[in-house]
Computed example of a mutant assay.
Amino acid sequence: MTDVHAVPQAGAIGSNGAATAPLTLEALERAVAARTIDTVVLALVDMEGRLVGKRLTARHFLESTVGHGAESCEYLLATDVDMSPQQGYGLAGWNRGFGDFQLKADLSTLRLVPWQTGTAMVLADALKEDGEPVSVSPRQVLRGQLQRLRKRGLDALVGTELEFMIFKSTYREAWESGYRNLVKATAYSVDYALLDTTSIEPLVRRIRIAMEGAGMNVESSKGECNLGQHEINFRYGPAVSACDDHSIYKFGAKEIAAQEGVAVTFMAKFDQREGSSCHVHL
């Protein structure tokens, strides 16, 4: 079995055939020495598909985290959407306490974060104290399903289409309003419209270019039916890497929107109009 925590080989192409290759450990070491990268985001995909974890100094990541991992609380895989610990989980809970697990960097996912200065990112797997994977972590659940497929002589290629809505408010303003009376980025449906999406193209273009720089294979973007609604499409690819990109894209789109003073949501059904789909193609 391939050790996903080993150093990726130089010359590899990016996810799903993207032009930008993954960031090798050697390239990261050179960038740290040149002081062009100073921060590494170590990210775990949680039960809601969000990225949680730590921002590490790049020096500490190279000196310690690559070899030994980083500790993190088990509660990250036992919370609700508001990050409140819940009862009933076998991994952790108020009834049995909250221990730690290890976040071990999957170096095949190491990449630049173009929308943050001097920053790289790597996804992590949650490991128990004995080094065994935490079976309920989303990436491990997906790997288990793929193993079942391969026993039947099958494999899975995945493509996702993620629609989102853009609001002319910051995230803080939206929260303080109770998420009421938010102004959408367009006043009418812009499904497939070109001229009418011009006003939000600077934001969407920045997201497209940033995701390419992060090693993803971006194909296109288009307006959608609901007000302020848009979607960005990516090339299909192996299930784990496609789903990794899916989570990083959502995270990155929200960070970029915040930098631009607006907010985006991938919420499935924001209002009575058309919802934002997550189309999954297998």
Rank of each mutant, 00 (worst) to 15 (best):
T170W: 05
S221Q: 09
G11E: 02
I232T: 13
C243F: 13
D106E: 09
S84Y: 08
S221L: 01
S84W: 06
A126K: 06
R148V: 14
A126S: 13
L42P: 05
D82G: 05
D125L: 12
E71M: 13
V7E: 15
R139N: 09
R139Y: 07
D155W: 01
E260R: 03
T109G: 08
E176F: 09
L28Y: 07
A253W: 01
D130A: 06
V122Y: 09
S169P: 01
D244V: 01
V32I: 12
I209K: 15
E161S: 04
D130R: 12
S199K: 13
A58S: 05
I207V: 15
M267T: 01
A268N: 12
G223F: 02
A6E: 04
L154C: 06
A257G: 06
E161L: 02
T79W: 08
G252N: 01
L44P: 10
G228D: 02
V204T: 10
I200K: 11
G53N: 05
S221N: 10
E231D: 03
E163R: 02
D125T: 07
I207T: 05
R143F: 03
Y188Q: 11
H230R: 14
L123G: 04
V158N: 01
C225Y: 15
M1L: 12
G144N: 11
M165F: 08
H68S: 09
L42H: 02
E132L: 14
F101M: 14
I209F: 12
R139H: 07
T57L: 10
C73D: 05
I209M: 15
I37N: 06
F234K: 00
Q229H: 04
T2W: 06
V40I: 09
T265P: 08
G261E: 08
Y188L: 05
H246P: 02
G159M: 06
V122M: 14
V113M: 10
V240C: 09
F251Q: 03
V4F: 15
K269Y: 04
Q272C: 08
L77Y: 03
E129I: 14
S221R: 05
R55C: 10
D245T: 05
D191F: 15
L194N: 10
R30L: 13
Q229R: 05
V240F: 00
K168C: 06
S169L: 03
D100Q: 09
R30N: 13
E212Y: 00
A185F: 12
S220K: 12
V81H: 06
A174S: 11
